[in-house]
Each structure stands twice: as C-alpha cells, then as structure tokens.
Amino acid sequence: MANSFLSIEKLTQRYPDGKGGEFTVFENASFGIEKGEFVCILGHSGCGKSTIMNILAGLSEPTKGVVKMDGFAISGPSLDRGVVFQNYSLLPWLTALKNVTFGVAARFPNWTKQQVEEHSIAFLEKVGLLGDAIHRKPSQLSGGMRQRVSIARAFANEPKLLLLDEPFGALDALTRGTIQEELLKVWSGTDQTVFMITHDIDEAILLADRILLMTNGPLARVAESVEITIPRPRVRTDIVEHPNYYAIRNHLVQFLGKRSAELAGQASAEGETHSPQTVRIDNTEGAGDAQPILQAVMT
C-alpha cells in the first residue's frame, strides 16, 4: 500500500466542536489507490468523505498524516489533481466553452488560443455538449449540462488524479444515467485515476473498480474495500444480470444500513493504523466452489 500511486497514510482530521473541545472526524485512516483505478467511496452524510477529498485535492490540510502521490507528499492544490465539485463550481460570468478554456489555458500555458479552444471543444463533445450550448452561460444550461461542462473542464486538463465530490447528487435519475456513461467514456482509455464520492450504490457498482466503505462519524473509518468483480465494459442494463451484481449490492446495502452504525465511534490506541479490509465477492463459474462468498483479507 505504501507503494501505491496514491497513498493515504494515518490521516487524522479534528475540528473544534464549538464548545471549547474538539471532535475527531476520522483518525489514522490509511489506504492506497493504484494508478488507473476508479475508486468510489460510500458512506453516510457527515462521515467525512468531502473532508478526505479536500485533503487529497490539497484544498485543506489534515490535522495529522500525509498523502503521497507518486511517492511525494502533496502540499496545496495542483493541476495534477483535477476536481469536480458537487455544485459544479462553474464561473457564472463565463460561457461553457470559456469555463473549459480557462482551465486548459492554465494547464498548457504554451498553447495558442486556437489549440486551447480546439482541445476544449473536443472534450465538451466527449461529454455530449455540442453546437450552440457551449456558448451559453451556466445559468442558461440545465443542471445536467452544467455538470457535463464541469467534467469536461476537469478531464480536459488531463490530470493524473481526478476527484469528484458527489458529482451527480443534484441530478435526476435519467440525466444521471447518461452522464455516468459519458464519464466512463472519457475516463476509459486513459490511465487516469479517479476518486469519486457518491451516495448512490448502483452508481458506485457501475463505475468503480473498488468501493471504499466508510462507517458513520465521528471517528469514522474506511472499514472495507469492496472489489467490483464485474468485467468492463459495463452497461447498466447488462450488469444487473451478472451473478455478482446482487451479491455485491446486498453486501453494500447491509453495510450502509447496519454495520456502518455498529462499527462507528471507536477511538483508537495511539499510533494504531486503520486500513480497510479487502472484500472480494465472486460467484461466477471458475471462481472456485471452495471460495467463500465473503472473503476478508487483512492488508
């Protein structure tokens, strides 16, 4: 894990509790993410997902612990780590296209204006934004279109790591479905690593190579790392037929419904490290009858 592309080591975040004391959001959280992996993190509201993401983005500093990317500790934000915020965070006085060129021009300062524009338009096209729409201001676009622009802006910068904080949280189910597919389209074929927060179990199964499960806060833990043993390319309507789909889904539902609360709130001994347990569920032929449905491996 220490050799992972992204390694989160003994991360602790405390905040003042407003009564003179402090409360611990999470403590000594440790996990790794491999290069090119798509990882989703699931957990109840308030457990600290956004806090972790902001630390990975370099937008905030943890109370303790380090995050290393490619072996180097990160400090502060970087163009190597792109962020898609939940509320899109488009600049409302710029058109959709200008919102993307804004980022591309910052990433590739030596490019000509035309190169920047062509590159930006190409990425807007990849997420299904064409024609007139790209010259409109965010206020004139639907929620789905805004989030497409936001995704295009992040991917057009070709960062090594992409961080997405509940990117589809505010969208209706149908729009969410199409944008999920577009997200897979822009991501596949790249060696980009994605870390995405979501509260939608089906979305996580569709998109992720691995799902990290967090217990409730305070003192939340990244308790499990569930491998999604469904081959890519995945299509929403097909994966539900896959023998592993419901087994994995049930496991996730059980965790979020019951175990996330049961496992919550245990303080840890000094210096103790909390790494998630790897969970691999595979019911397919050839996976071996002897293999238990739930295999927990300590990392």
Partner: peptide
C-alpha cells in the same frame, strides 16, 4: 469559496486569481 477553489486547483497566481476570478 468554490470559485476561489477553482482558481486554486488550477494553480493560478494571486494576481491572476484577483483579475480572472
């Protein structure tokens, strides 16, 4: 703050952030 964060994640200088965001 989100807009300032957009500037920060794009590594804009303080001057550039002031003028463009």
């Amino acid at each position: 703050e989100d807009w300032v964060n957009v500037a920060r994640t794009h590594e804009l200088s303080a001057i550039k952030t002031a003028f463009t965001v």
